[in-house]
Every structure is written in C-alpha cells, then in structure tokens.
C-alpha cells in the first residue's frame, strides 16, 4: 500500500516538478545504494546502477500504478538493473549455464507461455492470501505472539521443514505442525470463501490434521 506522501510526490513528479523529483531521490537513494552495494561490493559501480534505477523509474512512470508501494517498485527496478549489470560484466552465475536459464531470468515476460493463467486471476489469488496472512500477522503482533510469526516465516518464506524450524526455535516439532496446520486451514478457508481455488498453492496441500 502506497503512503499518501509518496503518492503526492509521484503526482507532482508526473507534472514535471523538479523539487518533487529531488525530494524522491533524497528519500530513496540511500536504501537503493545499500541494496545494490550489498551485491556489487563496489561503491562507484553501485552509484551507477542507482543512477540507472532513477532514470528507469522516470522512463516507466507513465505505467506506474500509484496504489503500488513506491519503495518496492524502486527495489524491483534496481534489481533488474543489477542483473543487467552482472550479465554485461559476465558475473552472473547463470552466464555460462548450458541452457536458457539466464535468458529466462532476465526476460521477465509473463505472457511468454500460452498456458499462462490470467494475470487478473493471479492478482486476485495473491491479494486474498496477502489479506488473510496480513490479518493473521497483525493479530499476532498485537498479541505479542512473535514466536508464531517466526515459525510461519521460516516455513513459508524460507521453505524450511518442520524439523529444522523446531530445532532452530528450540520448540517441539508438534508445535510447529500445529501452527502450520492452523495457518494453512485459515488461508485455505479464506481463499475458498472468496471463490478462488486453494489448490494453486503447493504449501496449502498439506491440510491433514497434525
């Protein structure tokens, strides 16, 4: 969700206001530089990539949806510029892969497959999951249930197995299984209630009682 302040800034930039553009640069360049520099480990080159990111932002501005979070959008552009840079300099890990992997990673073309599910459908599913999980996380934060957040983040975001999560957090595996089961059930129900298919998410297949 975009902040009001960012939305206003973008509107002013769309009208060609140089002060607003200066303000946006000041607000975001530091974090973008840090993001790029963590990969490149070279200050001057990283500054060049950030410069290309800002140019890329202005070039793509007509297509920018102001409901999107500006920071995430800028990080996405920076990420693409970073990959381009690594490829140009032969530093990309897939550069010499004997197949089409590098090409696939660099060419972000969602329409490439004739089997592609509709973008709208995918957005609806994403929004439903984000809304449900967002509410769950918000409740846990309010209740100070950070242990549950950690369990779910390791399972879903890192893809760790129950056993690894339990060992890392020093809890028993059954507790991890219970937290996973409750979350999977809640998300699955939420998606189905929204009239969407839960089976498109591999993580939601393990719905058997622990």
């Amino acid at each position: 969700m975009a902040s009001d302040s960012d939305r206003l800034l973008v509107q002013q930039i769309r009208q060609g206001d140089p002060r607003a553009w200066d303000h946006l640069i000041a607000r975001y360049e530091g974090r973008l530089l840090a993001f790029v520099q963590r990969r490149l480990h070279d200050r001057a080159t990283s500054e060049d990539v950030v410069q290309e990111t800002f140019i890329g932002f202005l070039t793509s501005l007509p297509n920018f949806d102001e409901r999107r979070e500006l920071q995430t959008y800028l990080f996405t552009i920076a990420s693409h510029k970073l990959t381009d840079h690594l490829r140009r300099n032969g530093r990309h890990p897939l550069q010499n892969a004997p197949d089409e992997l590098l090409h696939l990673k660099l060419d972000d073309n969602p329409a490439a497959s004739s089997m592609a599910r509709s973008h709208e459908r995918r957005m609806l599913e994403s929004e439903a999951v984000a809304r449900c999980l967002g509410q769950l996380i918000k409740d846990w934060q309010t209740e100070g249930e950070f242990g549950r957040m950690k369990v779910l983040e390791l399972l879903f975001v890192k893809g760790w197995a129950n056993r690894d999560v339990a060992a890392f957090l020093k809890i028993n595996e059954q507790q991890v299984a219970n937290i996973r089961f409750a979350a999977v059930k809640k998300i699955g129900d939420f998606i189905r209630d929204a009239g969407l298919p839960a089976d498109v998410f591999p993580e939601l297949h393990v719905a058997d009682a622990p």
């Binding site: 990673k105 969602p110 879903f156």
Partner: peptide, 28 residues
C-alpha cells in the same frame, strides 16, 4: 539448475506460492 528452470516455468505459467506473496507484499 534443473529445479530453477522448472520453477521459472511454473512462474511463467502463472503459478505462485504463499512464500512469494509474503515476500512481495513484505508482510512482516
């Protein structure tokens, strides 16, 4: 690399994961 290729193809077909949505929405 094979796993990565298969993952890219899945994403290309519009398949997604709870984890990817979590990261993209920066839920935590």
């Amino acid at each position: 690399r094979k796993d990565l290729r298969s993952l890219m193809q899945e994403r290309d077909r519009g398949e997604h994961s709870v984890g990817a949505i979590w990261r993209r929405s920066r839920l935590t």
